[in-house]
């Protein structure tokens, strides 16, 4: 929060298609440092920004596999570490250990997903000006740019149907 904001232009939009068009126009002009705020996830915006699929899925998969492996490892190792025959079953019984392995698959998978979410959100964090309206009903676009290019960006955003454009320093 204490990070110093880069200066730039902040625009608010009412309409999703206008915002998407503005993003495309900015990208065509070569502006890379664009942050878009939306109250809900939106396919049109995501396409305009042009993201690849989030790598979080890899975390889920690896977490799940790790959980499954540790479930079997934990149960089998603990069984043989102090072998006791209980209820006439083999010391290490794979059939019931499936239950533990399954639960740990889910637990680790979910945990890893959260970690992945936090990690990638942190890595791709965008610092910029912000307005409370963007979690309510408006779409925000923040373009970080040096002072000399601001008039051009301001012009572009204003013409693309922004309801408000302001310069943030």
């Amino acid at each position: 929060m204490n990070k110093t904001h880069p200066g730039g232009i902040l625009a608010a939009y009412q309409h999703v298609d206008a915002a998407a068009a503005a993003i495309k126009a900015l990208k065509a002009k070569g502006y890379r440092d664009v942050t878009v705020y939306t109250p809900v996830p939106n396919v049109e915006i995501a396409q305009a920004v042009g993201h690849k699929v989030s790598p979080v899925r890899l975390w889920t998969l690896l977490g799940g596999l790790l959980g499954c492996a540790s479930g079997f490892a934990l149960t089998l190792w603990m069984s043989y570490d102090w072998p006791l025959v209980v209820g006439g079953k083999p010391v290490g019984s794979v059939i019931p250990y499936v239950v533990i392995a399954f639960e740990l698959t889910i637990l680790f998978g979910a945990g890893a997903t959260i970690l992945g979410l936090l990690f990638h959100s942190w890595r791709t964090r965008q610092a910029g000006a912000y307005d409370g309206r963007f979690t309510d009903d408006q779409i925000g676009i923040f373009v970080a740019c040096p002072v000399e290019r601001r008039p051009a960006v301001e012009e572009l955003l204003r013409h693309s149907g922004a309801v408000e454009v302001r310069v943030e320093t």
Partner: peptide, 9 residues
């Protein structure tokens, strides 16, 4: 803040 990157993940 609901940024595009946040939503993406």
């Amino acid at each position: 803040r609901g940024t595009d990157q946040q939503w993406r993940h």
